[in-house]
Design a protein around this nucleic acid. Sequence first.
DNA 1: TCGATTCTCTACTAATCTACTAGAGATTGG
DNA 2: CCAATCTCTAGTAGATTAGTAGAGAATCGA
Lengths: 144, 144
Amino acid sequence: MEVSVKGEYALRAVFDLACHQQEQPIKIAKIAERQQIPQKFLELILSQLKQGGFLSSRRGAEGGYFLARPAESITIGDILRHIDGPIAPARRLQQDDLPEDSPFPELWEKVERALSSVLDRMSFADLVVRWKENRAKRVVNWQI
Amino acid sequence: MEVSVKGEYALRAVFDLACHQQEQPIKIAKIAERQQIPQKFLELILSQLKQGGFLSSRRGAEGGYFLARPAESITIGDILRHIDGPIAPARRLQQDDLPEDSPFPELWEKVERALSSVLDRMSFADLVVRWKENRAKRVVNWQI
DNA sequence: TCGATTCTCTACTAATCTACTAGAGATTGG
DNA sequence: CCAATCTCTAGTAGATTAGTAGAGAATCGA
């Protein structure tokens, strides 16, 4: 049931871009440094996210990546599906040679709905809000 | 996010045993045939499930496997965790080098709760009930 | 007791996937 | 033009997956 490291990197990268939405394009090197991701690996991931229409980029000096759409319209599920493939816990192919009355397809559908209810409802705008809340909380604790 | 083939086989095997709870021990060969699982692979899986305390067995002629506990007390989550490892989508180790105010740990906890709410609430007794319902429905449709 | 049956245990393996790295090429800003 | 930066194609070491092979140990029925 694990999300791949690549998937986690992708989420962290998009989150990083969502946090700097208003600014200039962000360089790969900057994201790699801030998010602790191997730069060459991150290049592949960002390129793949661009193919998927989530990011745009500019080359050359002062180039970099930025969100192609507002953070509110990109969900965790969108990114994970594009990088790691279907969220579904069971592969469709194998379902076919189960007996017609098997209870398992129902089970997997339930699981998928449960996952979707979290992953497809949570946008990167939500994540940024949470992040700001966490920072605020920490500052308050620190002041006490 | 995929369950391994081994995990699926384990679930199907336990389900098979749950369907034949009252009877004699069931032979590996019988389960392998009914559930379409490579027999030698299934041997390893059943042995592992026995180590986990879910199944008991008897060797020799008329031997086989049977549930060590009532089907109501064994959940999908129990079996998956024992065969595939933790249900959690993100590994704990990597969480440590995230910044303290990262919104991701919260996200993964939400996902884990969502998964648990399905996997840990569904027992094999429930599965058997669903299976019988499905069979009944099919018969009704067939009669019409 | 014998022998057929069935589970048990250890070891091996081919193929695939994961998490990268290397390096050359294409664009762009100044 | 040139330095910075993204882009694209390849390769790859190590781990994991989904098995297979084969000998050994326990049990039942006759």
